[in-house]
Each structure stands twice: as structure tokens, then as C-alpha cells.
């Protein structure tokens, strides 16, 4: 077991409605039980950058909370660095850290440097190394000029960068990043992705579990990925292998104007395996997975006959999004 950085065995988590108390009004609309995780078994090797993909409410954050000892599983077991997350929680905590996207932690009255100092000290990091690490991390996220600014004066993105630094300054063995680039600008997100890859490579044995909504980010960063929906693990493999699963289909992207009757239905056409439509202010973007390439003729004909005008048509390579749609049945934002 110790050769694995993370392991879960039939991990489950059910949220139960709170017991009725005489002094508290309970919400009659709240359901009695909600299964957030359902028998998830995973194995992550040391040195891996492992990704979790899933729509909102899929169970990603619940899984991270269990692995970071913040939440107890309802069934199954989990180990991080060979330590049981329930029985050995105290022994495990010095070796892990977590950063959640959009979190607002920290003290507004303190500066960025002071906040990072505070959250390093509760991990026992010596004063002699804290400032060195803070300077290095602030340079990574381009926040060095704000080191002495009060956190209450920072923008949401800058605060997010500070929290990103907080996760790394304690030099964890296993790091959990829950949507780390959420709300960051393109350049900052790119710098963070670059740093994450360097950080993993820098010291053997460092492991990272990352959840993200950005498919391209997952594709670029992760050695392996798990796709999770409604608490169940649907697939787990390298991005390349996952994409190979949908390579049996030809994928076309077609941009067209709306038809006379609004959206044009093509999913039921012969040879069409799957179709997803995205509306933009100026056009409709249609992505079709075809069992046979020749079926594209029928799709084009259907669009034209429905009053739509084709703007662009191209054949594309499968992406993680296609894998996701194939497994979950809809896109991340659907």
C-alpha cells in the first residue's frame, strides 16, 4: 500500500439530512439523503499529476475533502501516502495541503506576506525558510509587488494567487488543488500550469490531485485522469488513452446560422452517434460524432433544409471534452 501516493477502496459518502431539533426549523424540501460518492476506487502513484474531471456536484470536492481528512467517508476506505485518512489523520496532516479555487481565506488586515507567514507557521515551518519560500512563490504568481499590501486591498484574482502560494509554501508531499485557476486571467493561469509541472518534476515523490473545469488544462497537465459523475467513477486513464476511446468516431465541427425553426435537430440522423449544440450570439456551433464519415452529408443537408446557412465546417481530432460528453452524456457546462 505504501508504494501508492493515494488509494481509495470503494469509497462512498452520503450526506444525511440533520436530525430534527425542537429549536430548529428544518427545510421540508430538503431530501433525506444525497449520495455524493458511490464506491469510488482509485490508485495514484507517487510523482503523478492526477486529474479529476466532472460536472458540478459530481463528487470531486467531496473526494478531496475525504482525502484531506476534513470529511469522514460513509463507506470504504482511503489512504494518502500509505496513511489511513480516518485512523491516521493527525499523522497525515503535516504532509498534505489543499488549495480551493475561489476561496476567501486569510485575514484582510494582514499583508500577503503576513498571511502566508501565518499559514506556514501552523505547519511548523521555520521562520528562517518562510520568507525565502514566500518570495519564490510570489514571483511565480507575479504577486511580488503586492507582498506588503493588505489582503483587503487585493482583487479576487490576486487573493486567489495568494492562496495558491499558501498551498506550496509548506512543501507538501501530496497537494490537492481544487479548481486552482478558477477566476484567474489567461497569463496567470498559464504561469500556474507551468509552475505546477515544474513543481512535480522538481522532487521525486511529489504527487498532486487536481480538479478542473478546463478540459485543455486537464489535458495539458495530467498524467492520468478520472472522470466522475453523480458520485461514480466512469473512466480512469491517461488523456491519450481516453481520447482513443472516441477515436472510432469521426468528429466534425459545424458553425451555422439558426434555422427557421430555431435549433436544428440532427442527433437522430442515420450515422450520427452524438451531437452537441452550443449557441453563441452570432451563430450555432454544432459538434457531431459520426459512426461513418459519409454521414456528414446528411447533417449538412438537414441544416440547409431547415433554413440554416453553413458558416464553417471542419473535421477535428477528439478532445477530452468529447470523451467527457461520450461518458457523461453532456458537456461540463450543460
Amino acid at each position: 500500500m505504501s508504494e501508492l501516493a493515494l488509494r481509495t477502496d470503494a469509497l462512498g459518502r452520503t450526506y444525511r439530512k440533520a436530525r430534527k431539533r425542537w429549536w430548529k426549523r428544518t427545510d421540508p424540501a430538503a431530501s433525506k439523503e444525497f449520495v455524493a460518492l458511490d464506491g469510488v476506487s482509485l490508485e495514484v502513484k507517487p510523482g503523478e499529476l492526477f486529474g479529476l474531471l466532472g460536472p458540478n456536484g459530481a463528487g470531486k470536492t467531496t473526494l478531496i475533502k475525504i482525502l484531506t481528512t476534513l470529511l469522514a467517508p460513509s463507506s470504504g476506505r482511503a489512504w494518502v501516502d500509505g496513511l489511513d485518512v480516518v485512523a491516521d489523520a493527525k499523522a497525515l496532516r503535516p504532509f498534505i495541503n489543499m488549495v480551493s479555487g475561489g476561496e476567501s481565506s486569510g485575514y484582510g488586515i494582514l499583508s500577503v506576506r503576513e498571511n502566508l507567514w501565518l499559514f506556514s507557521r501552523i505547519y511548523g515551518v521555520a521562520n528562517a525558510v518562510i520568507n525565502q519560500r514566500i518570495d519564490a512563490m510570489l514571483a511565480v504568481v507575479d504577486l511580488a509587488d503586492k507582498a506588503n499590501s493588505r489582503v483587503s486591498h487585493l482583487s479576487t484574482g490576486q487573493r486567489q494567487k495568494m492562496n495558491f502560494c499558501r498551498g506550496f509554501i509548506t512543501d507538501p508531499k501530496v497537494l490537492f488543488l481544487d479548481e486552482p485557476t478558477l477566476g484567474l486571467d489567461v497569463t496567470a493561469a498559464r504561469n500556474i500550469r507551468k509552475f505546477v509541472k515544474e513543481w512535480i518534476a522538481e522532487k521525486p515523490g511529489r504527487t498532486m490531485l487536481l480538479t478542473t473545469h478546463y478540459m485543455a488544462e486537464a489535458d495539458e497537465l495530467c498524467d492520468r485522469l478520472a472522470i466522475i459523475d453523480k458520485g461514480k467513477l466512469l473512466a480512469c486513464d491517461t488523456p491519450a488513452n481516453l481520447k482513443r476511446q472516441v477515436q472510432q468516431h469521426s468528429i466534425f465541427e459545424l458553425s451555422h446560422t439558426p434555422g427557421s425553426g430555431g435549433l436544428i435537430e440532427v442527433a437522430g440522423l442515420p450515422g450520427v452517434h452524438q451531437a452537441t449544440t452550443t449557441e453563441t450570439p452570432t451563430s450555432i456551433e454544432l459538434k457531431v460524432l459520426l459512426r461513418e464519415e459519409s454521414a456528414i452529408g446528411g447533417v449538412v443537408q438537414q441544416v440547409v433544409q431547415s433554413g440554416g446557412r453553413i458558416l464553417t465546417l471542419k473535421k477535428v481530432e477528439p478532445t477530452l471534452e468529447d470523451v467527457f460528453i461520450e461518458l457523461v452524456g453532456h458537456g461540463l457546462n450543460a
Binding site: I96, S105, Y107, I122, G124
Partner: peptide
């Protein structure tokens, strides 16, 4: 409410 409690429980202190 400020999100700090979670970090305090997570830390080894």
C-alpha cells in the same frame, strides 16, 4: 465563514 476554519482543521497544529 471566512474559510479559515477549514485550513486550521487541515493543518497539523
Amino acid at each position: 465563514d471566512s474559510g479559515n476554519l477549514e485550513l486550521y482543521i487541515l493543518c497539523p497544529a
